[in-house]
Every structure is written in C-alpha cells, then in structure tokens.
Amino acid sequence: MAGPSVFTAQSLPDGDNVNPYVYSIGLAGEWFISKGAMLAYYGNIRFEAVSRYASVRDFVAAQFASPVYVQDWVVAEGQGKLVIGDRGFDLNAYDLDDGNLTIKASNLLAFDTRLALKQSIVPGFVVLIGTGRFIASSNGPVIFVEPPFRADPEALLGWADCPSPAVHHDAAWMAASFAGALQGALGRTSGEEKQYDFTGTGTVLMQSSEIARADPAVLRLIEDQTRLLTDAQAGSLGQQLMARVQQR
C-alpha cells in the first residue's frame, strides 16, 4: 500500500525524533511532561498530577522544586512509548552532563526525573540542573550563539553555562524615540530598546521571534511580587490594569 509508513509500538523510535516536530520517548519509569504536550502513547502509562504523585514518591517533590509550575506539569509513569509535540514547532532533545541550562518555561516540554527543575531569577524562565535529557520546542531550528551577545527577550530561548543576563536599554534608541515623540509620532514603543545582555563564556540559544503562548505561571509570579507593594502602590497598579482592560 502506498502512503506514509505506519508506525507501530516497536517501530517508533526509542528516545529520538519521529520527524522534526514529533519526539518519541521510550518510557521505562518516570518522566515529567508539560500538560498538553502528549500526542499519543503505546503501553501501560499513567499520567498523574505532580503534586499528587509527589505524595507517593517523595523524590519527585525534591526534583520538581518549582511550586509556581506544579499545576502545569504531570508525571508520566510506566512502560511504553510516549509521543509528544507542541504546535508543530521544531523539537530537540538535549543531554545535560552535570550541567545547568536555563530555558523559557513555555518551550520546555519534557525532562527525565534525574534532572532538577528550578525557577530562574529571570521571570518566565526555568533552570534544569544535573545529568539527564530534556525535550524543548522552538519556532524554527535553534540557533546557538556565543557571548558577548544581546538578545531580544521574545526571541531568547535559553542559555547554558553563562551567567544570568543583565537588562540592556539602548540609550540611543530611546533618545531617538523621545525626539520622535516630540515630533508628534506615536506608537514608537516596540520594546526594541530593551535587550538581554550576555557576557562571559557559555552558549545562548535563540529562535525566531514568536507570538508568545500565554504562560499561566507568569501571572502567579507577578501576583507573588505584588506583596512588595504598599497599599497605595497596589491601588495605583490596580487602576492602571483596569484602564488597560477597558481600552481593549
């Protein structure tokens, strides 16, 4: 019969890409999987909420040390083949060897339980530490660059082995924008003047800029930070947010 070759439980790759957009994990034990990343599976696999599973196997809570992200992840447990994907984006598997890598939380799809997940200091990013494999998505193939490099926050996928970035504001750009504002030109806030500045040695991972997927953890992160505000400041922020919603 003509047509695409049909996969079976045996012919699916064991820990490799099926095609650039689909990855097959050979499961024997436990993996952490982002909610919604699972496309299909063969075998005897159970999916459990991370918080619930942690009460059965206490090492899970220690490895998944990011309360903000607990609700967005599940533990896949059992024997079989687990096929994952993300909006048709390119998928890549990375092997960490006693290393650390920071990645955009919404692009991380799965990682094995030998790796520890921690929240990055940069909002919206998480850090993987240890030895093990993880699978991440990117819009187009990943581009690896070396510092010194300045990255647009929306196009930044992650970084490995280099210090956390600093925020760089392009002074010339802002001066030009201000002059432009005086001339009556509107709509000059592109965010182009804000970049993440990487220095030192390491690797920066880039992708083509995308329309960011809503990351539910960002809301929780910001809610957590509003505790730093005084009551007056909180009220002022509330009014700004109301105005923004009403303008839509």
């Binding site: 660059v145 490099f149 647009d152 196009a155 010339a172 924008s177 182009e192």
Partner: peptide, 16 residues
C-alpha cells in the same frame, strides 16, 4: 522592520 531584531553581537546601533 521594527520589532524584527532577534539579537546581535558587535558594536551595532539601532535607530528608528
């Protein structure tokens, strides 16, 4: 196009 810069290395200045 504005908003299309993903990142850069070297001494590059941007101007609207």
């Amino acid at each position: 196009r504005r908003g299309a810069m993903l990142g850069y290395s070297g001494a590059v200045a941007f101007r609207p």
